[in-house]
């Protein structure tokens, strides 16, 4: 009996959380259209986020491209299909691996950072101080950050994709003596706009989710220093879950369009 009650409580609090998050998202859209737009803070956030995650995305992308190619090589060799390597790698990276891996990294790097930053601003009353200084803290802190993640994530995904493909090319070049031109010629032959556009749209949603959850968790952070840790941590956990849900929906929707 007790276990059932616990599960019901859990589901209730989860649904409540979803409700509050949707309300928060609604407020974001309402406030985005209200003047003045905090352009300077928005640019600062874009720069800061790019700066913080560029290296991480590059290293991960490079290793993924490298490992992915190394691992698939023996199987393709068996089938005598090594020449398909560039097409296979590029499609899987552009469609799926690039966006989701970059988004997960950014959830850990950017999302938790936002959660911790806004959380500590809440706990130390900096958000209240902004409010009495004639600034709408929601616009200044939340709207700018969500917009920045939404814009920056697709750019980081492009960048990560490019590095991953380069990593894959290095393997092919060393092991199969494929030239740079030949490799990327095949990559671009294999890719269609039908691969690129859904992936880009998906990345915008990923970026939005990262900013939204990070800001939500930080903005409503519980008092006390423990609250800041919880905010940062739960920002990452919730965002990661949300990313997979969005990914799932995106694949679904894309498939419908392909079938048409």
């Amino acid at each position: 009996m007790n276990a059932i009650f616990k599960i019901i409580e859990l589901i209730k609090s989860f649904l409540l959380e979803i409700g509050e998050l949707s309300y928060f998202a609604g407020r974001f859209f309402r406030e985005s259209f209200r003047r003045p737009f905090e352009f300077k803070e928005f640019l600062r956030q874009c720069f800061y986020m790019g700066n913080r995650s560029l290296l991480l995305v590059a290293v991960t992308g490079f290793i993924i491209g490298l490992v992915f190619t190394l691992q698939s090589r023996p199987t393709l060799l068996e089938f005598g299909a090594v020449s398909w390597m560039p097409s296979m790698v590029s499609i899987s990276i552009i469609r799926e691996i690039g966006p989701i891996i970059t988004a997960l990294i950014c959830a850990g790097r950017i999302g938790s950072g936002i959660g911790a930053e806004l959380g500590s601003m809440r706990v130390t009353e900096q958000i209240d101080a902004m409010e009495v200084s004639g600034t709408n803290p929601f616009k200044y802190l939340v709207v700018t950050r969500i917009m920045a993640t939404t814009l920056m994530l697709p750019l980081l995904v492009f960048f990560g994709d490019a590095i991953a493909l380069f990593g894959s090319y290095l393997v092919e070049n060393v092991k199969g003596h494929v030239s740079f031109l030949l490799y990327f010629n095949q990559v671009f032959n294999a890719l269609e706009f039908g691969d690129l556009i859904p992936a880009t749209i998906k990345s915008f949603f990923f970026g939005f989710a990262i900013g939204l959850v990070g800001c939500f968790k930080g903005y409503y952070c519980k008092k006390g220093t423990a609250g800041v840790g919880v905010a940062a941590n739960s920002a990452v956990v919730y965002t990661s879950m949300l990313l997979f849900i969005i990914d799932f929906i995106a694949v679904f929707v894309t498939n419908i369009f392909y079938d048409l």
Partner: peptide
Amino acid sequence: IGFLFQGSALYDSMTVRENLEFPLRRH
């Protein structure tokens, strides 16, 4: 109305000058 917060509530990401300019530029 000036409000001195319990824990000072200075903006961590801004210099002292920017902290002081913040209310000036906005009000």
